[in-house]
Write a protein that binds this DNA or RNA. Structure first.
Length: 279
DNA sequence: GACCAGGTAGCAA
DNA sequence: TTGCTACATGGT
């Protein structure tokens, strides 16, 4: 085991690990003891995640992040949590309105994550018409059924399955895991990635709106899921996932941005919040 | 037992 | 384009 602390960055104090990892942007982390969304303790728990073949655990202690794991490479943590983002600079690009200030103050240190493409794609295909807690359960099931086991500290964790692994399984097996009607979407999308018909590299070079359109070629991916993938894994910080809750908030607080179509509302919001960091 | 949950696909107008 | 509806599963 190796361990250490991430220190020396002025902006470490601007992260709230719990808010960032439990806000439904990523379903790849788990609390080391017990499921997500259960602990109400003030003290930060350890969060565990498998990166490729390594187990990494992190925990917040005030303005530092403690970590331990099977590797001393902590760049994955910095990248995943986007610790190099200057939050104050991003905040200052937003319109100076009471609602925005209130939202920021409600969750100081809440960051946008940057997770790997394929797990994010599958996670959000699974997310439709589903409670957050069940999305976690489905991703856990996928890891434990199709991932590779890795032992650390006498516990076994599982990597996220590869595209080819999910492409080769059957719809029925995924239905047995409780994926419901999303099961064929997962298999078909995994096939598209595995056989190279549409991959991450086909998307990342495109301007935002083209990238969103391209993503919807995957089965089970509409505008909302596409925006989640763009924002949480491909670095398109202008992508705004318009789920039911955000749409209600837009209708209430920014009615002039509430247009008749998804893309029109999306565009109006980017004009209001800026072309770079609207997401 | 009805209703709902981070939407999307498929189809008709 | 826009407007329906079916869709699996589990929790309340």
């Amino acid at each position: 085991m190796v361990q250490g602390k991430i220190l020396g960055r002025e902006d470490i104090g601007d992260i709230n690990l719990r808010a960032t990892l439990e806000s439904g942007q990523t379903f790849l982390w788990q609390q080391s003891e017990g499921a997500m969304y259960t602990s109400q303790d003030e003290e930060s728990p350890w969060y565990v995640r498998v990166f490729d073949n390594d187990v990494v655990m992190i925990k917040q202690e005030n303005n530092t992040l403690e970590w331990k794991g099977t590797t001393k490479n902590v760049t994955d943590i910095v990248t995943t949590l986007r610790l190099d983002d200057d939050l104050q600079s991003i905040y200052s690009s937003f319109p100076d309105e009471p609602v925005i200030q209130k939202a920021r103050q409600a969750y100081p240190g809440l960051r946008v994550v940057n997770e790997p493409f394929f797990p994010t794609l599958i996670s959000f295909i699974c997310s439709t018409q589903m409670r957050i807690s069940r999305i976690y359960e489905m991703q856990s099931s996928l890891r434990e059924t199709f991932g590779s086991p890795i032992t650390f500290d006498n516990e076994t964790y599982y990597s996220y399955p590869n595209p080819s692994t999910l492409a080769e399984t059957t719809e029925e097996r995924l239905r047995d895991l409780g994926l419901g009607y999303r099961a064929p979407y997962v298999v078909e999308t995994a096939e598209m990635v595995a056989n190279g018909r549409l991959t991450r590299d086909d998307i990342t070079g495109q301007p935002y709106e083209d990238a969103r359109e391209t993503l919807t070629q995957y089965v089970g991916v509409g505008n909302k899921v596409a925006d989640c993938v763009l924002l949480f894994s491909l670095g398109y910080l202008q992508a705004i996932p318009l789920d039911t809750w955000i749409q209600k908030a837009v209708a209430t607080y920014f009615p002039d941005c509430d247009k008749s179509s998804y893309s029109a509302t999306s565009q109006a919001l980017r004009e209001r919040f800026g072309p770079e960091y609207a997401g």
